[in-house]
Design a protein around this nucleic acid. Structure first.
Lengths: 183, 183
DNA sequence: CCTATTTTTCAGAAATTTCTGAAATCTCTG
DNA sequence: CAGAGATTTCAGAAATTTCTGAAAAATAGG
């Protein structure tokens, strides 16, 4: 496994960013290595390339699999597991967003609903604040669900529509009429 | 500072979620407390309500201020600092997204550009992958910038447009003609 | 420019997370 | 179904992060 300076720097960066992204250094590094590798890699190759223990590699790969961020491949005549990242970057982004939503938002949404179910707690301000937060999260996750439903090329188109986004909604705050009529 | 079961549970939840959100338990709890409090609170009140040390409160507040998530208030005739969260939840969301972008995405975008500047590194696949990732991040941050530019009521309208989002982009992948013409 | 009050800093303690090596488990293949 | 190879588990070590108490610094009011 030749590791160019480019690869090296990219790996170190992902390792450092790991903690901000909610993963640890090793997991970030393993991901970085796989991301830039044109070929699937096995655990031993990763272990050697990163200079970590074999068990750490195993745990890191397990973590990446729990995030659905790596794919398992097999090479004929070789019993070892090989790992890759998807070729399609949009697939990666979709996975990442879906997983972060699941881990960072859904539990809170559930908790807010629970708290509301428990009924009046004698603190009107807090209750209103919780309801408002729940509604806002529902709105945002609903919007996300809509975007997630789009095929990638449409999503790209929407995102690159640029300045015109503002125009998608008319001044009165409604969807523009021409749109409302479209099927 | 009366702390109802509702408040208690909310605070504990935010404390537990803290690590997933990239803050620590104390910071999460302080924020939760301020978020549900109709009145600004001073450091001592927070310290007592959460049962933590005064210095920990100080550090937590400093951290929240670095995130721009709390506002400092003063009460006439009282020299202590009082803290609140903004009333407007959208303001909070905007701040949160902006800060996370700054901490989690911008450094990587900078690094990717740096790596590209360093010129050919003899690994075509890795170079192409890095360029592709950089382009994708630029597209997404550009889209974010567009949305961030919208006034809140338009943003809400856009987000609640629901199923019609898909219709904003026509089948050929372009913006629908009626829209393209609008100023 | 004191003094009382409030806030911040910081070194070390406590807690948590990450990492390792060794052993256990799994799984192909002959 | 034995055994070689591959992977996972896990207890403890190492590293990192969080928290505290004490001391220092900042600030307003007299």
């Amino acid at each position: 496994m030749k590791t160019t300076p480019l690869l090296q720097e990219f790996i170190l960066h992902f390792g450092e960013m790991g903690s901000r992204w909610g993963i640890n250094r090793t997991v970030g590094q393993i991901y970085a290595l796989l991301f830039l590798s044109s070929e699937p890699l096995n655990a031993e190759t990763i272990t050697d390339a990163l200079g970590i223990s074999r068990s750490n590699t195993s745990m890191g790969l397990k973590e990446l699999q729990s995030w659905n961020l790596v794919r398992l491949k097999h090479i004929p005549g070789d019993r070892r597991d090989y790992f890759t990242t998807p070729d399609d970057l949009w697939e990666i982004v979709r996975t990442l967003v879906a997983e972060r939503k699941k881990r960072e938002i859904d539990p809170t949404l559930t908790k807010l609903r629970e708290l509301e179910m428990q009924g009046p707690a004698g603190d009107d301000y807090a209750e209103a604040r919780i309801a408002e937060l729940r509604e806002l999260i529902e709105m945002m996750t609903g919007f996300y669900a809509e975007l997630d439903r789009l095929e990638t090329d449409r999503l790209v188109k929407l995102m690159t529509t640029g300045r015109r986004i503002a125009g998608l909604i008319d001044k009165t705050g409604g969807v523009i009429p021409a749109l409302a009529k479209r099927k």
